[in-house]
Design a protein around this nucleic acid. Structure first.
Lengths: 125, 125
DNA sequence: TTGACATATTCCCATATAAGTATGTATTGT
DNA sequence: ACAATACATACTTATATGGGAATATGTCAA
């Protein structure tokens, strides 16, 4: 099975850096395609295609105005992402606290737990 | 140019539903691969491959224990995602407020706010 | 040492890009 | 009506999957 389509959901859609760039650019104001092209320095067809993907997953909305099309980020569609990320925020705090505790423990005269690496091998990469 | 590698960053790595599932599963506790396999119902090689991707972008950490490998979500690596999503949270509120204001304006002065759905369309899935 | 057990890695292949180029389609000005 | 403007879509191609099958690697137990 191949990779899931970029239009399958918001997660796949924002995997592309250019699309994230467009979303951020459109978050402030409605913009027409030409402005986006000028702003992010990509050719018009590419921008249109990215906008097409974003449209299909409802990450942007469009409005016609004469021969222009005004795009705007639909912040609501980012919600699933936000919730996913937020789920880990608690653990993020936990881990921070643990690190902090370890640091403090090491300073204490008794030194209770010399080695307790949370992540033994910093995933090389 | 083809799509960016799933190992290029966290955004690409989490585009895969199975990997999000694994991340959520590993968020609570350290788990060995066999447990993950049993939990998400995917064959072992596939799970290992997903874990490999998550490892490369540092979304999970590993620890060896005998013949087992204990994986755990590295919540810190979710940060970029969280920040990206959070950027839109303000606009999300804005949009909600606008919708709310418009709704209220259209309504009779009495009946203040009968329905106020936080998520207009329950983010399916 | 040998075998069982737990994971990782390699190979194969149908599929989905993303960028570039070319072309199609509305809509407006004159 | 006609040309220009603003976008969208079609086509081509190099590339990266993700799952299944088979195999390799590493560790423990007898």
């Amino acid at each position: 099975m191949a990779r899931a389509a970029t239009t399958s959901d918001a997660f796949n859609a924002i995997a592309e850096p250019r699309r994230r760039q467009i979303l951020l650019y459109l978050a402030h104001d409605e913009r027409q395609v030409g402005e986006i092209v000028a702003a992010i320095g990509l050719d018009q067809p590419s921008v249109s295609k990215h906008l097409g993907v974003l449209r299909r997953v409802n990450l942007v909305g469009v409005r016609r105005n004469g021969r222009h099309r005004l795009y705007r980020t639909n912040a609501a569609a980012i919600r699933p992402l936000h919730e996913f990320a937020e789920t880990f925020e608690r653990y993020w705090q936990h881990q921070l606290n643990r690190v902090k505790e370890r640091a403090e423990a090491q300073m204490s005269p008794i030194k209770p737990n010399p080695t307790n690496p949370i992540y033994p091998k910093p995933p090389s990469r």
